[in-house]
Design a protein around this nucleic acid. Structure first.
Length: 280
DNA sequence: GTCCTTTCCTGACAGC
DNA sequence: TGCTGTCAGGAAAGGA
């Protein structure tokens, strides 16, 4: 499940592999992957002979900057890009094939077909609905402590749901939300607007720490995640609570529990992230 | 405006 | 063995 660190690792990989190449033509094997334009023929027509000038990222969205268009791609749960020679057989879960001028192909694979691709004119990307509403990236330069605190204090929902809300901060998904809350010693079901000053600052620092460390590690490989080189991330070796139900908390030894918060599987240490916080 | 629920999808796994 | 049911979950859309 690619979150910001995994998408960033895909981005840097793709830049090394296909930047500067021209797309000769595109084959779409599962129409629903293409969100825009709604007419698939138009998508294929427009992308023909476009050169991949660079590859950017905003939150969990990949942005392929082409000659005249920007291709916005979200991998959702299991989307991945592979570069293959055109004589390599098409695997079962390949849904979009971009033929490149050097005979290789950029292939989009997605077991669950949740990923979406949009092709829009250059320079309209920042105004595109999916991008425009995103909150700041989780780095010190863009995530301003005061703004962050104000955002949280007006949310009448759990802190876990708030961290997953892409309009508050861009790029945090289920794995890192659990890891961040463990780091900050805050219970995931705590209401965001009940956090006190000290907790808000601790949480802010935990976000920067966890996300920064995960980007450096090339992301986390839980199920099937691979970057463009087919490499896995290494952050899973730093995970403290995610997927650790029944194991000992690395901080206090208490057994890690799993519940459901904000409709998501949620892992936490019942001692470090105490329930008693909930009554405040 | 904010929050909550549903929808999209397939593979893995538990239980019978 | 083979079937059925449940779970995994990010974002968009629609309803409250």
């Amino acid at each position: 499940m690619p979150e910001l660190p995994e998408v960033e690792s895909v981005r840097t990989g793709l830049e090394k592999l296909i930047k500067g190449l021209k797309i000769k033509q595109v084959t779409v094997l599962w129409d629903r992957i293409i969100a825009e334009p709604s007419d698939i023929r138009l998508f294929k027509e427009k992308i023909k002979n476009q050169r991949i000038e660079s590859i950017g990222r905003r939150g969990k969205f990949l942005l392929f900057f082409l000659t005249d268009y920007v291709m916005i791609s979200h991998l959702r749960m299991e989307g991945k890009y592979r570069i293959e020679s055109n004589d390599v057989p098409i695997s079962k879960h390949t849904h979009v094939i971009f033929e490149l001028e050097d005979g290789r192909e950029l292939r989009y694979l997605d077991v669950r077909k949740f990923g979406r691709i949009s092709l829009i004119p250059r320079d309209t990307e920042l105004a595109h609905a999916s991008i425009a509403k995103l909150g700041p990236e989780p780095v010190r330069e863009t995530l301003v402590l005061e703004t962050f605190k104000n955002q949280l204090l007006k949310r009448k929902k759990t802190i876990k749901a708030t961290l997953l809300d892409q309009t508050v901060i861009a790029g945090i998904g289920n794995i890192y939300a659990d890891e961040i809350l463990f780091e900050a010693k805050i219970h995931p079901a705590r209401m965001a607007n009940t956090l006190i000053e000290r907790e808000l600052i601790t949480l802010y620092e935990a976000i920067l720490l966890v996300m920064g460390k995960a980007v450096k590690a090339g992301g986390t490989t839980i199920r099937t995640y691979q970057n463009a080189f087919g490499e896995t991330g290494s952050y899973q070796s730093f995970l403290n609570v995610y997927g650790k139900k029944g194991q000992s908390c690395p901080r206090c030894g208490t057994t890690i529990e799993k519940t459901k918060v904000a409709q998501r599987g949620t892992h936490y240490c019942p001692n470090c992230q105490s329930e008693s916080q909930l009554i405040r």
